[in-house]
């Protein structure tokens, strides 16, 4: 039973400065991952540094690396990866892993199914999908609830509505996805703040979902030390 547990699929997510994604991928391969998906995002503006905020200089480009693997592999390597890229220091990146329920379409996984949630997770990942331009509001709302920042990813919506046509171009509505990592005990507070600010209860204003994070590296407390 224990062995089966260790074969359950997990998602490892690493967020690093732009340009580092390839290095994470290479290191990950050395550590035994079969592959990864990299996409671009940006770090939200930072409220900690007033000076930067005032001069509008606090955003930065990020790369997000997604790796799917068995729990055993992820568990063994997340620490090595974080140590290698010095996630214990500020601004070096973050890594976290979370359980997922199923992987298909990859020959290395024999369609394994996972458990529902992690054991005693300390963090939760909040995903908010909103119309383009509203990610800042999400970050603002999260800030009011005590969060210090997040990652914003550009995306397109493929809603169930009919696609619109402009001239001869079929268009899709543009979206932004905001990823926030919060401590479990703060999660409800943060989501409530976002829900209120963006009026998520009304239709068409966006979606929010959360997922338990089994383990996270690189989340630092205010004095710069790592909190685990």
């Amino acid at each position: 039973m224990a062995q089966q547990e260790s074969l359950r699929p997990e998602l490892l997510c690493v967020i690093v400065r732009h340009g580092m994604g390839g290095k994470v991928l290479r290191k990950g391969k050395q550590l035994g991952f079969k592959g990864a998906t990299i996409f671009l995002g940006r770090g939200s503006k930072d409220y900690k540094s007033r000076r930067l905020h005032k001069f509008d200089l606090s955003e930065s480009r990020k790369e997000i690396v997604l790796i799917l693997a068995e729990r055993r592999t992820v568990e063994e390597t997340i620490g090595t990866l974080s140590a290698h890229f010095r996630f214990d220091r500020p601004h070096h990146g973050i890594a976290f892993r979370m359980p997922i329920s199923e992987i298909q379409g990859s020959s290395q996984f024999a369609n394994t199914t996972g458990e529902k949630g992690g054991k005693n997770p300390m963090y939760k990942a909040i995903f908010v999908i909103v119309d383009r331009g509203r990610a800042e509001d999400v970050i603002d709302a999260a800030y009011e609830a005590g969060q210090k920042g997040g990652t914003i990813i550009k995306a397109r919506g493929a809603g169930a509505h009919e696609t619109q046509k402009l001239f001869r171009m079929e268009i899709a509505p543009e979206k932004e996805v905001v990823l926030l990592l919060v401590k479990v005990e703060h999660c409800e507070h943060v989501t409530a703040s976002i829900r209120k600010r963006l009026e998520l209860d009304k239709p068409g204003n966006g979606l929010l979902f959360t997922q338990e994070v089994t383990e996270a590296y690189g989340l630092l407390s205010e004095d710069g030390t790592e909190k685990e």
Binding site: G43, S49, S58, P90, H91, L181, V182, L219, L220, E222
Partner: peptide, 11 residues
């Protein structure tokens, strides 16, 4: 803190 994205060093 959810990763202070960039004070001066990573701005």
């Amino acid at each position: 803190v959810n990763r202070g994205y960039g004070d001066f060093r990573r701005s």
